[in-house]
């Protein structure tokens, strides 16, 4: 039941999470920060703008990104196979990348290409993480993971840590906000969207929060308090990292993912497989 609610209300909950994040970030910088519902004010404001676009395909892809993102979340929460949910996420990336590279703006195209670099950094790791969860639980089914008696986090801590460092890549947070890079390429893929069309992307990002933190929650197994604790800690850690680090080059990101994170997760999986 709760998963249906979470799926249907994903944009709302994601918006609140984003609002909390902005407040938390401001407090970390000793600022007051915007109100908690600020993302929704932004949302309403954007609804009220005159719609302008580059061309229909571009605008349409923004909307498709939002729908695909939501659908990926639905597959994750309502389906029963985690692996499929990981691959569904790629459709959202497809829409985003096609949209972003369909305009002849250098920043947008650059952002799209960097988005691809993001994908090769986190995609294999997501697959590894799902496989690691499978090793622990013995099933790809999300319900089985949530009914697992043990503590997945204790069996695959390195995978969790690797995933924790992957979250900035997925949510476009410093030091891995390479594709978005507001000070450098001004939002990358999202630069050309405006008004109601930008809304789709803006809200799609909120849904991505739910999508990512659901995976974090799974590391708690059937101990929901642990899952919630992990989500909160991960959230705080990500924001701390975001506030305290500078952006890295995309090469560094890919190298880091491939030479540190993936071997780390693989090592954990191998050890666990041998242990069993």
């Amino acid at each position: 039941m709760i998963n249906v609610i979470l799926t249907v209300l994903a944009p709302l909950i994601g918006g609140v999470v984003y609002g909390i994040e902005r407040v938390v970030k401001a407090r970390m910088q000793k600022r007051v920060g915007p109100p908690l519902l600020q993302p929704f004010y932004d949302f309403f404001k954007l609804m009220d703008k005159r719609p302008i676009m580059i061309h229909s395909l571009h605008a349409l892809m923004g909307i498709m990104y939002f729908i695909a993102e939501w659908f990926a979340l639905a597959v994750l929460l309502l389906g029963n196979d985690l692996l499929i949910a990981v691959f569904f996420h790629v459709i959202a990336v497809l829409a985003l990348v096609i949209g972003a590279s369909s305009v002849r703006s250098p920043y947008s195209v650059l952002g799209a290409l960097r988005e691809l670099m993001h994908m090769i950094s986190y995609e294999p790791l997501m697959v590894l993480m799902v496989v690691a969860l499978y090793l622990v639980v013995g099933s790809f089914d999300i319900r089985d993971v949530l009914n697992y008696e043990g503590y997945p986090i204790l069996e695959i801590p390195l995978v969790f840590f690797a995933f924790l460092l992957t979250i900035p890549m997925m949510l476009q947070k410093s030091p891995f906000d390479v594709a978005e890079a507001h000070q450098e390429i001004i939002g990358g893929p999202e630069i050309e969207y405006s008004g109601p069309f930008y809304e789709a992307l803006y809200t799609g990002k909120w849904i991505e929060y739910i999508y990512v933190f659901t995976f974090v929650f799974l590391f708690g197994g059937s101990h929901y308090w642990l899952g919630i604790l992990l989500v909160v800690l991960a959230f705080l850690f990500i924001n701390l990292l975001d506030n305290s680090s500078a952006r890295l080059d995309f090469r560094t990101m890919v190298k880091f993912a491939w030479s540190v994170l993936i071997p780390m997760a693989a090592l954990n999986v191998i050890l666990l497989a041998l242990w069993q």
């Binding site: 902005r22 401001a26 910088q29 000793k30 600022r31 007051v32 920060g33 915007p34 109100p35 600020q38 004010y41 932004d42 404001k45 954007l46 703008k49 302008i52 507001h182 000070q183 001004i186 939002g187 630069i191 050309e192 969207y193 405006s194 930008y198």
Partner: peptide
């Protein structure tokens, strides 16, 4: 910056004409 913090009014420096008001 923290001292004046105009983000508390919801103001953001977007750097992008498409999304700016």
């Amino acid at each position: 910056a923290p001292r004046y913090d105009i983000e508390r009014f919801g103001m953001l420096n977007r750097g992008n004409p498409k999304q700016a008001d």
